[in-house]
């Protein structure tokens, strides 16, 4: 997982609970907490941190991950505006994500856990995103999509009928755009 994701989690915790809370989480986990955007770190580290954050906030993991996803989008948009500027619409942006991930993750390290998004234009109002990833972070993807919708000021409804957590080989994320 890219270091920037850890940085954003740190910011989220600092914003919600203060600097001391993040320091406490790190010291409880015996984690030095040094993460830089230029590097990738083990996925487990992030999951352990998310677990600790959920415990602190007294929220289930999935809810924290969803919230984190939404927050993450705004932070990523702030840091890497180029990807947002390239696309004028939410649909266009969502369809560009797969390509962006591949370049952004692989530019520094080969990563076998790369997620993939296969986009299918079901109709004018609907986009189907098939999410595949050994990490099974579909809830994070959901949060990111909600964050993107907010950024593009587009109202959407999001359905998630097929899910890897329910034994399917991939997740179907169905995004309906409201006119």
């Amino acid at each position: 997982m890219k270091g920037v994701i850890f940085n954003i989690l740190e910011e989220l915790v600092e914003q919600r609970c203060g600097m001391q809370a993040w320091n406490n989480i790190l010291s409880e986990l015996g984690n030095a907490g040094i993460y830089t955007a230029g590097k990738s770190y083990p996925d487990e580290d992030l999951m352990v941190l998310v677990g600790a954050v959920s415990a602190k906030l007294e929220m289930p993991d999935s809810e924290v991950i969803g919230m984190f996803g939404e927050y993450m989008f705004s932070q990523l948009a702030d840091r890497y505006p180029i990807f947002i500027e390239q696309e004028n619409t939410l649909r266009g942006f969502l369809k560009s994500v797969d390509e962006v991930i591949h370049v952004e993750v692989r530019k520094l390290y080969e990563n076998p856990n790369l997620p993939s998004f296969n986009c299918i234009d079901t109709d004018d109002q609907t986009l189907l995103m098939e999410y595949r990833s050994p990490r099974q972070l579909c809830i994070l993807a959901e949060g990111l999509i909600r964050g993107a919708a907010q950024h593009y000021k587009t109202t959407i409804t999001l359905e998630h009928p097929r899910c890897m957590h329910k034994g399917h080989d991939h997740c179907d994320l169905i995004i309906r755009f409201q006119a």
Binding site: A37, R79, K107
Partner: peptide, 18 residues
């Protein structure tokens, strides 16, 4: 400052990768 440095690194590595 760190964010700027990181951004520079990311942009440059993206260019290099492409």
């Amino acid at each position: 400052a760190r964010r700027e440095a990181e951004q520079l690194l990311e942009d440059k590595s993206r260019e290099l990768f492409k």
